[in-house]
Design a protein around this nucleic acid. Structure first.
Length: 951
DNA sequence: CAGTGAGCGAGCTTCCGCTTGACTT
């Protein structure tokens, strides 16, 4: 089976790995006769959208999914657009080779990539699967000498995973579009990640703080001290008359002492009284307890731990960490950075040990190399731990690196070296001090310290803590050398108040850690998971904290109520078990998918992630059933959250708002809630404030004529100005007075519009004059821009300025012209494409509301994403038209369509605005508005500016 | 969520995981 060295010398072999950087390294190890090239990741995948679905499947009901759910979930694969060139290159290289080695990673995805390569390249020469877990000369040579066969079962497991993710994502996301907001998304990973963040916020909202007090005493030994024997030290009150004093951990999340705990809860008065009663007390050491301390080094980095430490020590976000690591990897400074393994190769262990001896001395080197057992449950261990590359580690100084790359390398280097050093050992000491108060109570204080007698690995590396206030476990704290019975004097005794704090929000790093522990996501995706939930507007960053939006509350609420099993925290872990069974040949992919998608009763495997339903009773409905009948999902209900006092927070298509009372009823109130208001800050009081003064208003001044205040705000149809009528003005009924309102011109923005502008705008419509028949002509600003109106006859104006300047003669001249039927019709076609072979009509490309489209005057078809006005050929035009004709005229609820369109469009604009806002927060505070700035964008930016004038 | 008039082609959004450049801001 294995190729002998004789045959190796003869032919030429093509070795395909996943990463170009890896290809480069391996090339050097294999020498002549081997051509090493990269696949650059996956080369084929399910079609992304309709545009990528091959023509022959278009029109199939399942084409949208890219998986034929009616035929054993047969997937449609297409070569990724950006991989076409690479595939071509691989084909060419293969044509010149006598043997093909598929050397992709040895994990589920790698096996699948190998299989796809085989399917696409269709090799006519012998194919071998070769695997290695570390990139060292020996490992590579051994891998070449010991190839194996492709593991089709493992490929099946990957394909099942892929299909499940597609079905989940592409079936559940549209539910959110219909019930919450367009363009939202749901997925096995992102939805659980979002749920974690939401659930933490719920805990924070429900949290009730508790106040508790204690005393801190500063005690003196009466000796002159030094660093190893300080003369004074601080100790905290730990017990009174033998009863332990309550600390933060004794309180539950409701703000009361946990059940049945006999602790003494001190309030401020009690604490101060006790402090006073201890003022004259003489103290003595009651006990000294010393315990040995031992700490082992941390395992070498894997992706998640690197992200966590880079966040804590260097302040990098997950994405930044991976980008810097990628550069280090590409330039040969470190091993692969997307790994779930903490294993070091033999070479690496030797290199680390050599460096320990050289830098710290043999005393710091353990007798045997240290090994670290995998802690990650679903680890696939295709790579080594992240470490400095090579068989001799370069010290940071030797690398010549600088900036972030230097800092990250140094972190990796230190951690790797430290992982092969001895334990740190020392003592931890607890000293208890006692004294009797003036009123006869026994007060016990306690202090603990730690001395390190041998630093071991700490010489090289100390891990950072998530909570900067928490005392580092590794840090030393020295207490004076006291013994039982020693007299101490209290220099000062102070009463300190404390409050329990709600659980901290997730940070990027802590969320990634949580996901890894729950087996959700993979090393290559952790950073992008954060990116996805940020992009969707499910979370936003406040400092380093990830704060869920109200939108995410609505989405998670819907998913929990109607897709409970899918957002169960164990869903992925359970799926992984099932996939492992498929990989071992103990389960079949198709029945498993059938059960997931079509539900129980459609032949299936027992238990596991294939139970898609919400777990109600015994019936386990399939995903298909859940997304088909949406009548049970009350959109209003899932996006409503009571705030208290009759106020409800709702998540609407245009963002969150608070509301009191029913619409159109007496006392109905409604106000926008800023997109970036942390949900736990929306108290009843805050909601009342918002209702009292709708947010987003720009007060422009007072109309000198009416005396009414004039404000600018963002509305349903974009930014507008309006006057605030005095209290008591009837708003409904016969005598209703409507405030004058007017949309801003396109050239204006909410944050820059002036009172003069507003007054001018509100003076519209302007009467231009009357025509010969005495019909009044007015100039108005409308949805489609400035226009003239005479009865029911309206004509567009070219500029907004004309509204104020156009004369009657000019207006009459416009009306003398025949009416233009729409502005689009007036525009010349962008391109002519000759005559359509079917309709025999001339085909042209036009620019419409939805972008460029081809038309023969009868059938219209929008250009697809890959089409371009400049390069489109007549043939492609005919093809698009033919496709369109085949599909037949799209006739839906034609009447309702316009309103719906406007809504959807608007929502999109706002969505973009949210994004722009988020981007603005992270990036510099430049005015990035630039050319394409929509009105909505400007509005959002304006809101932000208004909210934070300190900038 | 304010309410102002015409005429008109829908198509697409979305998942997770594997990899880098090629793009623009």
């Amino acid at each position: 089976m294995s190729p002998t060295s004789e045959t190796a010398q003869g032919g030429r072999r093509l070795v395909i790995v996943e990463s170009p950087a890896k290809a480069k390294t391996i090339k050097g190890y294999l020498g002549p006769g081997y051509v090493v090239e990269a696949s650059v990741g996956h080369i084929r995948d399910l079609p992304n959208g309709a545009a990528e679905v091959p023509a022959k499947y278009k029109g199939e009901s399942w084409a949208r999914l890219g998986v034929n759910v009616d035929a054993d979930f047969q997937p449609i694969y297409v070569v990724n657009h950006d991989k076409k060139d690479q595939v071509k290159k691989l084909k060419e290289l293969l044509a010149e080779s006598d043997e093909l080695f598929l050397a992709t990673d040895e994990d589920r995805e790698g096996e699948a990539i190998a299989w796809h390569l085989q399917e696409v390249l269709k090799p006519k020469v012998p194919v071998r699967r070769m695997v290695f877990h570390e990139i060292t000369k020996d490992a590579i040579r051994e891998a070449v000498a010991n190839p194996r066969e492709l593991n089709k079962k493992l490929v099946d497991a990957q394909e099942t995973r892929r299909i499940l993710d597609r079905l989940y994502g592409y079936e559940v996301s549209p539910v959110l579009w219909k019930k919450v907001m367009p363009r939202l998304s749901a997925g096995r990973v992102q939805s659980v990640a979002t749920r974690l963040v939401v659930e933490r916020e719920r805990e924070r909202i429900a949290f009730r703080s508790a106040e508790y007090w204690d005393l801190t005493g500063t005690f003196a030994t009466g000796r002159g001290g030094d660093a190893s024997d300080p003369s004074t030290f601080a100790a905290r009150l730990s017990a009174v008359d033998g009863r332990r004093v309550a600390q933060g951990r004794d309180f539950g999340s409701t703000g009361v002492i946990k059940d049945g705990s006999p602790v003494l809860h001190l309030d401020e008065a009690n604490a101060r009284a006790l402090a006073a009663a201890l003022a004259e007390t003489s103290f003595a050491v009651r006990s000294v307890e010393s315990k040995p301390y031992r700490r082992s080094p941390y395992a070498p980095f894997r992706t998640t731990t690197l992200q966590q430490e880079a966040s804590r020590k260097l302040g990098f976000g997950a994405k930044a960490t991976m980008q810097v690591a990628q550069k280090l990897y590409e330039n040969g400074f470190i091993t692969y950075m997307r790994t779930d393994s903490t294993t070091l190769s033999e070479t690496a262990v030797q290199a680390a040990r050599a460096q320990v001896t050289q830098l710290y001395g043999a005393d710091y080197l353990p007798d045997k190399p240290r090994t670290y057992a995998g802690k990650v449950k679903n680890a696939q261990e295709a790579h080594e731990a992240i470490r400095p590359s090579g068989d001799r580690f370069r010290t940071p100084a030797e690398t010549g690196l600088s900036g972030d790359q230097f800092r990250l390398y140094e972190l990796i280097w230190k951690r790797t070296v430290a992982s092969q050093m001895k334990d740190a050992v020392g003592n931890s000491v607890t000293v208890k001090i006692a004294g009797r108060s003036a009123d006869g109570r026994d007060a016990e204080f306690s202090a603990s310290g730690k001395t390190i007698t041998f630093h071991g690995f700490m010489k090289a590396y100390v891990e950072g803590a998530d909570d900067p206030n928490a005392e580092l476990d590794d840090r030393e704290r020295r207490l004076p050398q006291v013994t039982e019975g020693d007299a101490l004097t209290a220099e000062e005794i102070t009463a300190d108040g404390h409050a329990t704090k709600p659980p901290a929000r997730y940070t990027e790093a802590s969320l990634v850690k949580e996901l890894e522990e729950r087996e959700i996501g993979r090393p290559s995706t952790y950073a992008s998971i954060i990116g996805t939930i940020l992009d969707r507007g499910y979370v936003f960053k406040k400092g380093t904290a990830l704060v869920p939006s109200f939108l995410s509350f609505a989405v998670v609420n819907l998913l929990e109520k109607h897709f409970g099993r899918l957002v169960d925290y164990d869903f992925t872990a359970s799926m992984e078990e099932d996939l492992d069974r498929i990989a071992r040949g103990e389960a079949q992919a198709v029945p498993w998918l059938r059960r997931f998608y079509f539900g129980e009763g459609s032949e299936g495997v027992a238990g596991g992630a294939a139970d898609a339903g919400n777990g109600d009773g015994d019936h386990l409905g399939g995903l298909k059933e859940l997304v088909t009948d949406l009548g049970a999902i009350d959109a209003r209900e899932v996006s409503s959250f009571p705030v208290g006092d009759g106020i409800v927070l709702r998540v609407g298509r245009y963002g969150p708002y608070v509301e009191r009372g029913e619409k159109d009823s007496e006392g109905h109130q409604r106000a926008d809630v800023p997109d970036d208001l942390p949900p736990d800050e929306l108290t009843v009081e805050h909601a009342e404030e918002l209702l009292a003064k709708p947010s987003g208003d720009f007060e422009l001044g007072t109309d000198p004529v009416s005396g009414n205040p004039v404000i600018a705000r963002d509305g349903r149809y974009g930014p507008y100005v309006t006057e605030v009528l005095p209290e008591g003005t009837p708003k409904t009924g016969k005598n209703a007075v409507k405030p004058r309102t007017a949309s801003l011109f396109k050239s204006m923005a909410l944050d820059t519009v002036t009172l003069d502008d507003a007054l001018k705008l509100m003076s519209l419509p302007r009467v231009v004059g009357k025509d010969a028949e005495g019909v009044e002509i007015t100039a108005q600003n409308g949805r489609y821009g400035p226009y003239l109106k005479k009865g029911t006859d309206s004509r567009s104006l070219e500029t907004e300025d004309q509204l104020f300047t156009i004369t009657l003669d000019e207006a009459l001249a416009i009306y003398a012209q025949p009416k233009q039927r729409g502005r689009a019709a007036a525009k010349p076609p962008l391109k002519e494409l000759g005559t359509d072979p079917v309709s025999e009509r001339p085909v042209v490309v036009k620019d419409g509301r939805f972008g460029p489209y081809v038309t023969d005057g009868e059938t219209n078809a929008t250009l697809r994403r890959d089409d371009d006005v400049e390069t489109i050929t007549p043939e492609r035009g005919y093809e698009l038209l033919a496709e369109k004709r085949a599909k037949g005229p799209a006739k839906k609820t034609a009447k309702k369509a316009p309103a719906k369109k406007a809504t959807a469009k608007k929502a999109t604009a706002k969505k973009t605005a949210t994004k722009a806002t988020a981007a603005k927060k992270t990036a510099a505070k430049k005015t990035t508005a630039a050319k394409k700035t929509t009105t909505a964008k400007k509005t959002a930016a304006a809101k932000k500016t208004a909210a934070a004038p300190a900038e």
